[in-house]
């Protein structure tokens, strides 16, 4: 694994370096993409200037709320749906199809219900994330073998105790997958909603810069979003891997 990590980092470095060379030599036109070094420098200046911090705080706050509520609601719905095999099976095709639905189309509806503030963007993030949690909760519960249900019975556990002591720990790594997806989908949902039709947040700042041909602001901001989302997702990915590795034969 160590070797793979080294190769991966080298690969990323090579890509960044190639991009730097291609932009410096003009093979990639400057208006398409500035050199990565300039993006980083631009991001540094932008952060020092302090003008984007409110937008960043706002966006990250919305993502946190969307993600947390998706995990709570999604787990509850998942547990409820999984209780009946027929219901879970009947809903399966709808869960996959769900990701083809442009949830952003419901934005006007969200505004009508929740007002013009930040709530609609949170709801969009929630809507994208919650289904991933539901699907993974069902999957996690499905993976509990019958013998563990019997074992719970042997110890004479109440359903609640069995859930706490046996089912939840057993399903943990698979539930972590749902949490990981909830994080990335709330990023996608909230930033997407800001991007399309909000007047606040990082997403909006990127569109604003794009419309005003301010590449020196747009690129650093895009870089920032990708870095933050990449780091957070990477951490959850590593967490999930660690939980799963304990289950696989080594």
């Amino acid at each position: 694994m160590k070797r793979a990590t080294a190769i991966r980092l080298a690969l990323i470095a090579a890509i960044v370096l190639a991009l730097e060379l291609l932009t410096r030599t003009g093979v990639i036109a400057r208006f398409v993409a500035p050199p990565p070094s300039e993006m980083v420098a631009g991001l540094w200046r932008l952060l020092l200037s302090g003008r984007v911090q409110p937008a960043i705080a706002q966006t990250l706050g919305k993502i946190a709320i969307a993600c947390a509520s998706a995990i709570v609601v999604g787990s509850a719905v998942g547990v409820a749906v999984q209780r009946s095999r027929a219901v879970a099976d009947a809903m399966a095709p709808f869960f996959t199809a769900y990701y083809a639905v442009p949830v952003y189309a419901f934005y006007p509806l969200m505004i009508a219900i929740f007002g013009v503030g930040e709530a609609p963007q949170v709801v969009i993030g929630f809507m994208l994330a919650v289904v991933a949690v539901v699907v993974n909760t069902i999957n996690a519960l499905d993976r509990i073998p019958r013998v563990l249900h019997k074992t719970a019975a042997v110890y004479g556990m109440s359903p609640l105790e069995a859930a706490r002591r046996i089912y939840l720990p057993h399903a943990g790594p698979y539930l972590a997958t749902g949490v990981k997806l909830a994080v990335s989908y709330s990023f996608i949902g909230v930033i997407g909603a800001e991007f399309i039709m909000s007047r606040v947040g990082i997403g909006h700042e990127i569109v604003f810069a794009y419309n005003n041909f301010e590449n020196e602001i747009m690129y650093p901001l895009i870089l920032f979003v990708l870095l933050v989302a990449g780091t957070v997702n990477g951490l959850f990915y590593a967490w999930e891997k660690r939980l799963l590795s304990r289950r696989s034969r080594s």
Binding site: I7, V183, S184, M218, A229, G234
Partner: peptide, 23 residues
């Protein structure tokens, strides 16, 4: 080497890349 790269790209808000795609 590749899987974490695929997964992180999958989980990025790709909508932010849209201006670049347009350019």
């Amino acid at each position: 080497v590749g899987e974490p790269l695929l997964v992180s790209f999958y989980s990025l808000p790709k909508i932010t890349l849209y201006p670049i795609v347009l350019l």
